[in-house]
Design a protein around this nucleic acid. Structure first.
Lengths: 148, 148
DNA sequence: ATACAATAATTGTATATACAAATGTATGGT
DNA sequence: ACCATACATTTGTATATACAATTATTGTAT
């Protein structure tokens, strides 16, 4: 990826600004690849994220605040995101009996089935995105990212 | 930044997936800081980006496709983004005389004035975001990002 | 027991963005 | 000159997101 080429600038960018722009460009690329690989499964990256969180619950229901805490990109409106997953039959929602303010969200068998197909697509997307990295590279890159 | 802490997961994430999530989290943080430091100036990061591109034109007007090419995050609708900058008095738009399909967009003196204030805010934001990095670190990080 | 504050989720609304279709203009071939 | 095509921008529309206000429920202090 060549920053200057992508944003079509001829002048040399200052290192600090260049780094932040670089990260934006990388994130844009990641997002684009993810969206495309999830498109056939009719879910957005965030919906996929919620499904994975629910699977990680191993049968235990999650409520909205738990989902919000664990989502990679926090949203102001998880209710409507879950609405869409319900519409697709991937999750199920009931009011929590012990505390009726809360809601219990579970992934359905259809959701699990769909999710396992998404996993394959995502795996391929990750491989494509990271094809130029060795394991060593990834560890070092993660170390740098930790500095943020 | 601790990935596992932010997304509240106890289990160890696979290196590839962790890296991509890590980048998302970093970008979210960058974006948040940028939005906040531009908020007093009443522009979004994308609007700021357009203003900077226009200043870089050094008096020469830019048309919409030029802006779109040079923007960090490409938008499907630069027309309306420019509309907002016009409303704020930061830019000026006229139809191009030599090719009336095109438009000529210029930054106004008020836009330049506002932009120079934004520069200060952005500089501070960059410093804050990158406080844990040495110059050496930034060079190495950029090298890794080039692998995408 | 009642009132008040805190919590959890939902709804309303304004704005943002993506995508497709439409508009107006220019260009090239016959 | 005429027509089809390409180009540059704008508009329409559906969906997404941010933020604030609202509803419903629970916890707590008096």
């Amino acid at each position: 990826m060549n920053v200057e080429k992508i944003i079509k600038t001829e002048k040399q960018l200052p290192l600090e600004g260049r780094t932040l722009i670089h990260i934006s460009l990388v994130q844009n690329k990641i997002n684009e690849v993810m969206i495309n690989s999830l498109k056939p499964h009719d879910v957005s990256p965030q919906q996929f994220n919620v499904l994975r969180i629910l699977r990680g619950q191993k049968g235990n229901p999650a409520n909205l605040s738990t989902l919000n805490e664990r989502m990679v990109t926090k949203m102001s409106n998880t209710t409507r995101l879950v609405d869409k997953l319900i519409l697709k039959g991937f999750v199920h929602r009931t009011v929590c009996e012990s505390n009726r303010r809360k809601v219990e969200i579970n992934i359905t068998p259809e959701g699990l089935e769909a999710l396992s197909n998404m996993d394959v697509a995502i795996k391929a997307a990750e491989k494509e995105l990271l094809q130029n990295f060795t394991n060593e590279d990834l560890i070092l890159l993660n170390n740098f990212l930790d500095k943020f």
